Simulated scan of single mutants.
Amino acid sequence: MYVAVKGGEAAIANAHRLLADRRRGDRSVPALRLDQIIEQLGLAVDRTMGEGSLYDRELAALAILQSRGDLIEAIFLVRAYRTTLPRFGYSKPIDTAAMKIERRVSATFKDLPGGQLLGPTFDYTHRLLDPSIAEGAAVDEATARASADEPAPRVTDLLDHQGLIEPDVSEVQDEIGDLTREPLEFPLNRDRRLQALARGDEGFLLALGYSTQRGYGRSHPFVGEIRIGEVEVELDIPELGFAVNLGRIRVTECQMVNKFKGNAKVPPQFTRGYGLVFGQAERKAMAMSLVDRSLRAAELGEDVNHPAQDEEFVISHSDNVQSTGFVEHLKLPHYVDFQGELGLLREMRAEHDVADDAEAYPEAAE
C-alpha cells in the first residue's frame, strides 16, 4: 500500500472513486451494457475468456467494462475470479471433427471433403475505415448467421490415412496434466505446454511465431486447417455410468503442417503444430501452433538455437498476468531499496573521485 503517499488510505479510496468516474465517462452518453459488449465486441470477449482460462461471456464482458477496455487487466480480473470457483471434475476431450463449423479454411488443399467456408473474417477487407458502421448500417442477417451443419473431416486426418504425417500423440497419452493445479517444472510434457500456450499472451506468441518465419527457427509451415465453430462439452458422471452433455462452446482450432526430413528412426514426413483456444481467435491459434512446433525441436532431434525453441524462455514469459505483475510492481514503493543503492553509488563515486585526483595529481598523493 502507498502508505507514504499524502493522505494514505483516503488517497487510495479517492483514486478508486476517480477511476469509477473515468470509467463511466460523459454522463450524457448512454452507459455500455454487458450485452452490447458481448454482441459487438465479441473478439475482445473471446480473448479475455481464452487468456483468462474461463469460458463465460458475461463475466468476460464485465471484466472488460470494469477495466475500461484494458484487456490484460480484464484477463487478470477473470483469472482472479476463476480461483474462487469450485472444481467439479474434468470434461471429456472435445471432438473438433464433429464441430458445427462457422469458418473453415485450408492453405494446403483447395478441394477438401466438406468444402471451405470463409465465415466471419477480416482477411478480405480493404482495411479502410468505414463511416457507415458509425451510422448504424444494416447487416444481412441471412449472411451473418451462415454456418455448416455437417461435420467435416480434419485435413490432418487425410494426411494421416496416407501415412504422410506423424501420428496424433494426443491419442496415445494416458494422463493429462493440469497447469492450474500443478507447479511448472521444466521440461514440460506437451499437454501442459499447450495449456500454457493456450492462455499465453497473444502478442507475445505472435511475435515468437513471426520470428520463426523470419529465420529464428527451422520453420516452413503450411496452414493445414483453421476451423471455428461450436463443439459439445461432456462430463462423465460416475454415479450415472455415462457422459452428460453440458452444452456447447465456441472454439478456434489450427493445425500447422511442417515438413520434417526424418532421422534414423523416423522416415521423412510432415509434423504438426497445434493451437486450440476459446472463441474466435485464429491469430492466437495460429501463433500458438507455430510456437508449439518450434518448441518440439529437441524432441525431433533439431538444434535449439532460437528463442521460440527454448521452452523455459517461452513458457516463463508468455503469461501476461505474471508479466504485468512483475513489470507493474515497479510502481510500488521501493524507497528502502533505492536509498541503499543511492548510498552505495555515493560511496563508489567518492572512491572514483579520489582515484581521479590521485591520477591527476600524483605528487599530491605522495
Rank of each mutant, 00 (worst) to 15 (best):
G115Y: 01
S219M: 07
E347I: 05
F222W: 02
A97C: 12
I75W: 00
S170R: 15
E328V: 07
G262Y: 00
I94E: 08
A148L: 08
T121G: 11
K92N: 12
A44R: 07
I101M: 06
T324A: 13
R57C: 10
G50T: 06
A13E: 12
I237Y: 09
V169C: 05
E175Y: 03
E359Q: 09
R68Q: 05
V155E: 00
L332W: 02
L117F: 05
F204K: 02
G209D: 03
D303M: 14
D353F: 11
G50E: 02
G69V: 00
H317A: 11
V105L: 13
M99E: 06
T125E: 09
I64N: 00
L62R: 05
E328K: 10
E135N: 15
D168F: 00
L164A: 03
L85D: 06
H329M: 14
I101H: 03
Y361K: 06
V172S: 14
D201N: 06
L71V: 02
M49P: 08
G7L: 02
I12N: 10
V5N: 06
R227Q: 04
T84L: 11
V29R: 15
V139H: 03
K284S: 04
I38V: 12
G325D: 11
G215I: 03
F222D: 04
E202F: 14
L34V: 09
Y90V: 15
P187C: 01
E225S: 08
G343P: 00
L65N: 06
A63Q: 04
P267G: 13
I133W: 12
D26K: 15
P151Q: 02
I38W: 12
I12P: 03
Q116R: 06
A63G: 06
F76V: 11
V277K: 04
Q116E: 04
R192Y: 06
E150M: 14
L128K: 11
E299S: 15
E51Q: 11
G301R: 10
V3I: 12
G241P: 04
F326Q: 14
L205P: 04
A264L: 11
V5H: 11
A138K: 14
K100H: 06
R190E: 05
E299W: 09
V29I: 14
A355W: 12
L18T: 15
A355C: 09
L246P: 01
E102N: 13
Y274E: 05
H16A: 14
T83Y: 02
A198I: 03
P238W: 00
A61L: 01
A298V: 11
R22W: 09
V169T: 11
E171V: 05
L164Q: 04
P187S: 01
A63D: 02
E232S: 03
Q36K: 13
G262I: 05
G115D: 08
L205V: 05
F313I: 15
S323L: 05
D319M: 04
T324C: 13
K284A: 05
D201G: 04
H161T: 14
V251R: 11
P333E: 06
I133K: 12
R22Y: 09
D310Y: 08
D236G: 13
D130G: 08
L300C: 14
A15T: 07
T121I: 07
E182P: 03
S219F: 02
L344Y: 08
V327K: 07
F204E: 03
D292C: 04
Q40R: 14
E351H: 14
A308R: 01
E73Q: 08
M99Y: 00
R24V: 13
